[in-house]
Design a protein around this nucleic acid. Sequence first.
DNA 1: TATGAATGAGATTTCATTCAT
DNA 2: AATGAATGAAATCTCATTCAT
Lengths: 195, 195, 195, 195
Amino acid sequence: MTKDKILEAAIHQYSLHNYHGATMQKIAKEVGIKPASIYFFYKNKESLFVAAFQKLLEDHFKRMQSILEEVHEKPILDIFATLIKGTVEYHKNNMNETNAYISLVTSPPAEIKKFLHDHMNKFDKWMIDSLHHLIKRDHPKISDEEAVNLTRKFILLLDGIFWEINLYDDDELSVQIEQAVHILEVLLGGNYNAK
Amino acid sequence: MTKDKILEAAIHQYSLHNYHGATMQKIAKEVGIKPASIYFFYKNKESLFVAAFQKLLEDHFKRMQSILEEVHEKPILDIFATLIKGTVEYHKNNMNETNAYISLVTSPPAEIKKFLHDHMNKFDKWMIDSLHHLIKRDHPKISDEEAVNLTRKFILLLDGIFWEINLYDDDELSVQIEQAVHILEVLLGGNYNAK
Amino acid sequence: MTKDKILEAAIHQYSLHNYHGATMQKIAKEVGIKPASIYFFYKNKESLFVAAFQKLLEDHFKRMQSILEEVHEKPILDIFATLIKGTVEYHKNNMNETNAYISLVTSPPAEIKKFLHDHMNKFDKWMIDSLHHLIKRDHPKISDEEAVNLTRKFILLLDGIFWEINLYDDDELSVQIEQAVHILEVLLGGNYNAK
Amino acid sequence: MTKDKILEAAIHQYSLHNYHGATMQKIAKEVGIKPASIYFFYKNKESLFVAAFQKLLEDHFKRMQSILEEVHEKPILDIFATLIKGTVEYHKNNMNETNAYISLVTSPPAEIKKFLHDHMNKFDKWMIDSLHHLIKRDHPKISDEEAVNLTRKFILLLDGIFWEINLYDDDELSVQIEQAVHILEVLLGGNYNAK
DNA sequence: TATGAATGAGATTTCATTCAT
DNA sequence: AATGAATGAAATCTCATTCAT
C-alpha cells in the first residue's frame, strides 16, 4: 500500500538525514511517486512524521515483547542473554529503523516529544515488571529491592550494548555481549571464580 | 575571536537541529554577524562543520584525559566511579556539545565519517591502555586477559550510562550510576569472598 | 508553452548580458513566472542553457537550409547573392538570436564546446557539399578543385559579411554586400571590367 | 607594476567569462593580491574595465599601425597579404586579448559603447585612408572610386578571416588565407588579362 | 489516486564594495 | 600600498505546499 510505503520511506530518509534532511522530494522518490501525491495521504510533513514515529516505537515495543514471549520459559540468565542478543540482532537487521529510533530519542522534533516520553515510560515499566516477575520466579529468595536493582543493572547493560551497536563492528560487539552476559552471571550466581 | 564563536554556534545549532536544520542564518545570528561573513572564515557549510566536529571530538577527548589525570592516584574503584560521574557531569554541563556529539556518532555526515572512525579508535585505545595499566597497578594478581575484560566491562557500563543521560532525569540517573559502581565493586571482588 | 518561452527568454537574455548576466530572475521575469518555476522544467541554469544553445544552432541551420532550398533553381551567382542577403536579413530580424549565436561561437561555455564543434563541422560540410554541387551544375567545366576553392571563397565572404553585421549600420552593410557579390561575379565570370 | 597587472588580468578574465563573469575576486587572484586592493587603483569595477578596454583597443590599433609601417614599401599585394597574416598571427598569439576584443565588439557593456564606436570609426578611417593611398601609389590608373571599393573588399576579406580565427584550426585557416590572397590577386588584375 | 505546474519562503553562496588599520 | 573583516544585495537553488485536473 502506498500509504505504508510512504511511512517506510519517511523512516528510512529520517535515519539517513534527520528531520530537516528527510525531504518530501526524497521520500516521494523512494516510493516512486511525486511529492504532491504524499499530501493525499498525509496532511503535511509533520503529520507524516508523527505517524512514522508512532510506527517506529510500536514496532520496537512489539519486537521486544515477542522476544520475551519466546523465551520466558527458560532460566532467567538465558532470558537476559536472549534479550540482549535479540536486541542486537533486531537492530542489525533494521539499521534504518534503529538509526531513526536513536535520532528520535536523542533529538526528538518538538511535536513528538510528549508522545516519545509517554512511550518510554510505558516501555520501561513493562520491561521492569516483566523481568522482576521472572527474576522472582527463578530466584525466590531474592528480595524485591534486589530484584529491582538487578533489573536496573540489566537495563543498564542493555543500554550499553545498544549504544555500542553504533560504535563497534560485529566481532567487537560479540565480545562486549559476552562481557554483559558474564556480568549478569556473576550477579546472579556469585560463582565468579567459576568462570 | 569571531572564527571560534562561529564554531561554537555551529555546534550549538547542530545539537538543536542537526546538520540540515543548523542553517548559516541561525549560526550567524547566534554570533551576531551576517551569514555572508561566515564565508570569510570558512569556505562553505561543509568545511565549517568539519572544523566544528573536529573541535567537538578533541574537546571530548581532552576532557576525558583531564578527568583521568585528576584521579589517577586514587584506588581503581574510585577512578571508575569518578570517570563515570565526571562523564555524566561533563555532559550535563555541556548538553549542547553532548547532543551534537551523539548526533555525530549516530548519524555522521558522510564527509566526516573517516575522521570520526579514526578518532573513536584512538579514544578507545587510549582508554583501554590507561585503565589496563591502572587495574594492574592496584590488582597485580589479575591476569592480563582478566584486566582487559574488566576494562571492557567498564566501558560497557560507561556507554550504558552515557546513553541513559538522554533517557533519564537526574534522580533516575543517579540510581543507575549506583548500579554501575556496584557492578564494578562486585567485579573487583569488593564484597565477594569468592574472589 | 512555458518550457519554450523559458528557452526563448534565456536566449534573449544571453544575447543581452552573456551567460553570467542572464540571471534566472531576468529570464523568469521575461516569461512572467517566478524564478523557482524554471526549475520545474530545467534541472539548473546550465542545463537550461545547453537546451537553449542547441535550439539556437538548430534554428540557424534550418534557416540556412530553407534559404538554399528556395533559391536552388536559380543561377549560382543569384544563389550566392541570395544566401548572403538572406543571412543578413535573417540576422537583422533576429538580433537576439544572432548576438547569442556570436557570443556562443566566440566564447562558448565549457559544457557546450563539444556540441558546438560538432555542429560547426556538420554545418560546414553541408554548405560545402551543397554549393559544390550547384557550382558544377552551372559551370560544368570548372574542375573539382576550383569548385572547392570557390566555395571556400564564398564562405570567407559570407563570414566577413556576418562579422560586419556587428560593425556597420544598414547603409554601410549594403555597400559591403555589393562588394561581396561583385567579387563572386568576377570569380565566376572574369568579365571584371564589365562592371 | 600592480596597476598594469590588474589591467591585464581584467582583460584575461573578461576574455574567459565576459563582464559579469570577470569578478574582482578572480582578477585579484590572478594578480596575486586581495580584491580590496584593486580599489586602491581603480574606483570600481566599471572604471577598471573602461581602462582595460581602452588599453585593448589602443594596443590593437598600434599593432595594426606597426604592421603597416613595416611593409608599406612593398607592393600593394604583399601589403594586403602581410596585413592579413599579421592580423592572424597577432590574434593567435594574443587569444586572451582577441577574445576580449571580440566580446567587446559583439556585446559591449553600455558604459563603453560610445568610446567603442568612436574608436571603430577612427580605426576604419585610418585603414581606408592608408590603403587608398598605397593602392593609388602602385596602381595610379585606378580611379578613386575603384580604389575605395578595393579597400572595402580588402576589409571584407580581413573581417572574414578574422571571424574564422574562431572557427577553424590552423591548417584550415591557412587555406582560407590563401583564398583571400588569391581573390585580391585577381582583383588587382594579377593573372587576368581582362583588366 | 496521482500529477503537472506553480510559488513563497528560505537556504547556500557569490559579489562588489567599504573601512579601519 | 595592501589587507582583514564585514556587509547588503543579489544569484542559484531547494523545499513544503497548493490547486486544478
